[in-house]
């Protein structure tokens, strides 16, 4: 087993501001960036703030930017860097800093609340649900999401445009709309909720111009753009230009 000393540059600071701080730190075989951050805590910077939980790529807590790229620190192996490379670790840029590598991800929880929940079909009781595997495959792919918010962080609609945050749910929550829309038993329609239309009108689907940045950073390799956002856009467009839907909506509006 071999070890070496690596150069780390870690952003330290809080809401008042801060900057990059240099560290020299030991690295052993098989370690990941999060191991090194932990070693810094244990030996040089006991109050270095960082979120983490499972250290196995399952909880999505240890999101940060490593050399400028949004990543899970627990799944970023040190072996992907050369030994003389200085590794820079900074907090997620799209969210306000709380302290060091910890950011305020409240934006995501606000957006989660704006997506209406699954609507159970009124005619089926618990235990009576029947769904075929091929019909749940698509929504299951989206439910692999570990809510690391890397896609939310990297999406340029909000990354450099704070002003868009109000109107735009971000890839994670547009994907949630798609997941519910593709759920074989979701009964939103029966309650007069058209998820496709709301994706466009209320969650800002139109802001997305399918650059696939979200898909690239997804640690679960969910094909967010191809499987969720593009189909949702197509469905939303179909609704808008479908003459029967137009007629139905017009009549319904008159009835009010």
């Amino acid at each position: 087993m071999s070890s070496y000393e690596a150069g780390f540059r870690v952003w330290r600071g809080d809401t008042e501001g801060g900057g990059l701080e240099d560290f020299k730190v030991e690295v052993h075989d098989g370690e990941v960036v999060l191991d090194i951050i932990h070693r810094l805590q244990a030996t040089q910077a006991p109050d270095l703030a960082v979120r983490w939980n499972c250290k196995a790529g399952k909880c999505g807590s240890c999101s940060a930017e490593v050399n400028g790229r949004p990543r899970l620190m627990c799944m970023t192996r040190m072996s992907v860097f050369t030994r003389d490379e200085v590794i820079t670790v900074t907090p997620l840029r799209a969210f306000p800093v709380v302290r060091d590598l910890v950011t305020d991800v409240g934006f995501n929880y606000t957006k989660a609340r704006e997506v209406p929940a699954f609507v159970p079909p009124s005619d089926l009781g618990p235990g009576e649900y029947r769904m075929m595997q091929e019909d749940v495959d698509r929504s299951q792919e989206f439910r692999k999401c570990i809510e690391c918010f890397l896609c939310q962080d990297t999406c340029h609609v909000v990354r450099d445009h704070e002003e868009n945050k109000g109107a735009f749910a971000g890839p994670r929550f547009l994907m949630r709309v798609a997941e519910l829309d593709m759920h074989p038993l979701d009964a939103a329609d029966a309650e007069g909720l058209d998820r496709k239309t709301t994706a466009q009108d209320e969650h800002g689907l139109g802001y997305c111009n399918i650059t696939k940045c979200c898909t690239e950073v997804c640690p679960e390799q969910i094909r967010i753009t191809d499987n969720a956002l593009i189909p949702l856009k197509e469905r939303a467009a179909d609704r808008k230009y479908d003459p029967l839907v137009w007629l139905g909506n017009t009549i319904r509006r008159r009835g009010r």
Partner: peptide, 19 residues
């Protein structure tokens, strides 16, 4: 009952051939 109830809250478990 606790598992079936999860389905009414939106859970999507893997399915048998008969759904």
């Amino acid at each position: 009952d606790r598992v079936w109830e999860l389905e009414t809250w939106g859970a999507l478990f893997d399915r048998t051939a008969d759904g």
